[in-house]
Amino acid sequence: MKTIFHSAESRGFADHGWLKSYHSFSFANYHNPEKIHFGVLRVLNDDSVEGGMGFGKHPHHNMEIISIPLEGDLEHGDNMGNQGIIRKGDIQVMSAGSGIMHSEKNAHPNKRVKFLQIWIIPNQQNVPPRYDQKSIVKNAVKNDFQQILSPNPNDVGVWIYQDAWFHLAKFDKDFSKTYTLHQSGNGAYVFVIDGKIKIGDQTLTSRDALGIWETSEFNIQALENSEFLIMDVPMQLPRL
């Protein structure tokens, strides 16, 4: 088993006043040649947007874009006619494909919205753009791995054009469980939202991350009540 530890403090940071964003991988003006991607996981941004502010309409193409709100209300609009609010307990996905224009803003005038924005490199290019949003709170489980994303449109959660699976977990203190990767050649990027966990000899606290590959499984122990996200992704970049 190979691992790479990314502490919360090692992330890039951008302060635009209305937007504060921590970058786990190279993004915008933050460039770290040792942190370009983890397999097909290209972007993991930890964003906080002030009340009433947001991103105006802008384009994306050939990227799977996932948003997971952690606090507050995020308003979405796009050129396909989708308009709505995503909240904590929801997950949103856009397959940008051949091209999409969208905007996102804080739907509340004076409360911050916090969310994770994640980009996955797809295994198909120039697909028709698509949008989906689902509640994941109704299927939430304690002390288990809740699947919230997969490559299968018939699975629970949302789906993307890539052999990737996301699981959200909330573990009670001292609980431990073994995670099994979904397919050979995949690795897992474990991101701690809150709390403290241990994987092997590595302890992770809030916003720390551990990349794990060349193994079929690994054990996670909660050292305190914890919430974390497992992104199970191909380590080989697609040849498109």
Rank of each mutant, 00 (worst) to 15 (best):
A107M: 02
A164S: 15
L181N: 01
N106C: 08
D201R: 11
A169Y: 01
D201Y: 05
D163S: 13
N139K: 13
T180Q: 12
H102D: 04
W213D: 14
P129H: 08
P129S: 15
I199K: 11
Q133M: 06
Y161I: 07
S103H: 03
K196Q: 15
S184D: 13
P151S: 04
K196L: 10
D163G: 07
P109V: 08
K134P: 05
N219F: 00
I121S: 07
F171W: 01
Q133A: 12
Q202E: 14
A107R: 14
S184C: 04
T205G: 14
F166K: 09
K198E: 15
S135V: 06
F175W: 04
S226N: 10
H182M: 08
E217S: 15
F175D: 05
G185N: 04
Y161P: 00
H167V: 00
H182D: 02
G195S: 11
K173V: 05
K111Q: 14
Y161W: 14
V158T: 13
P153M: 08
Q162S: 13
Y161A: 10
W165Y: 15
I193Y: 04
T215W: 03
L149V: 08
N126W: 10
P122L: 02
I193Q: 10
Q162W: 09
V141M: 12
P129F: 10
I212V: 15
W159D: 11
F218D: 02
L168W: 09
V192Q: 06
I118K: 02
K196I: 07
S98Q: 07
S150G: 06
P129A: 11
L223R: 06
D174V: 04
D208N: 13
G195T: 08
P109K: 13
D144K: 04
S216L: 08
G187I: 10
I212K: 01
G157D: 01
I118G: 00
Q162C: 06
N126Y: 12
K173M: 05
T215N: 09
G185S: 06
K177Y: 04
T215F: 03
N139I: 15
M101V: 07
I120Y: 06
Y131V: 03
D201C: 05
I197R: 11
A209M: 11
K105N: 07
V113M: 03
G200K: 10
A222I: 06
Y131W: 05
D194V: 02
L223E: 13
I193C: 05
D144N: 12
N123K: 02
P129N: 05
W213S: 12
N152A: 04
L181D: 01
L181F: 00
Y161Q: 09
T180D: 07
Q202V: 15
Y161H: 14
S216K: 13
W165H: 12
I121P: 00
